[in-house]
Write a protein that binds this DNA or RNA. Sequence first.
DNA 1: CCGACACTTCAGCGATCGCTTAAGTATCTG
DNA 2: CAGATACTTAAGCGATCGCTGAAGTGTCGG
Lengths: 112, 112
Amino acid sequence: MPTQDDVLDRTFHALADSSRRSIVVRLSEGPASVSELAEPLEMSLSGVVQHIEVLQKSGIVRSEKVGRVRTCQLEPAPMRAVEQWIAQHRRVWEGRLDRLGDVLNTTYGRNT
Amino acid sequence: MPTQDDVLDRTFHALADSSRRSIVVRLSEGPASVSELAEPLEMSLSGVVQHIEVLQKSGIVRSEKVGRVRTCQLEPAPMRAVEQWIAQHRRVWEGRLDRLGDVLNTTYGRNT
DNA sequence: CCGACACTTCAGCGATCGCTTAAGTATCTG
DNA sequence: CAGATACTTAAGCGATCGCTGAAGTGTCGG
């Protein structure tokens, strides 16, 4: 069973590449086959397949093969996990941000 | 000048490591020195410094050296960029998601 | 001035990444 | 059945990653 950390590792990693993000963008408009996903990318088909594998391992993408065509679609859960992770920690600093400007040139004590 | 793609590449990459995320979590509670950030991590100091460099290159972290102490703090802009990128594309599929279940076992035609 | 402290810099190392080419394996089409 | 199509699998390669240990540099405290 993958920990939450594993999910975040894999999802952030999957999205840290602009070819993979463009696949995600394309899939956000609806399912597509491997070769449809490959078409706009200037890369060999097997390069694209490897990107899709990374996306699948992160859980962002699901796929199913019918006949000789593999069709891919998005799975929203991992991206929501990422979005929530960011939102959660953003809330913490935003509560502090108004004070940081002054704090920087004085003491940095933790108030715990 | 870094493109938006570069920012996303570097920010997603920076967050794709649990040691770096734990640094971000720690910094969300307020600024900290390099050795304060290093303390909970089971890793050499220079390993930690390298993680901080990755975070700085992405723009997530800023730092300033006073005397012999480097103090780090969070910079919210890049994480907001990531959050917005996700939110933007999530909106697109969520409009479609209710249809996908049925679509999967029928045709996958794009309706453009 | 001398040692402790807080980094800093650098070489190196095994592992993973992103990509290629080449050679498969099914599946459809005529 | 013979192609063409749509992947699939595997080897390999240069680059980057995450980390270490060792040797610095600059600062502070006594």
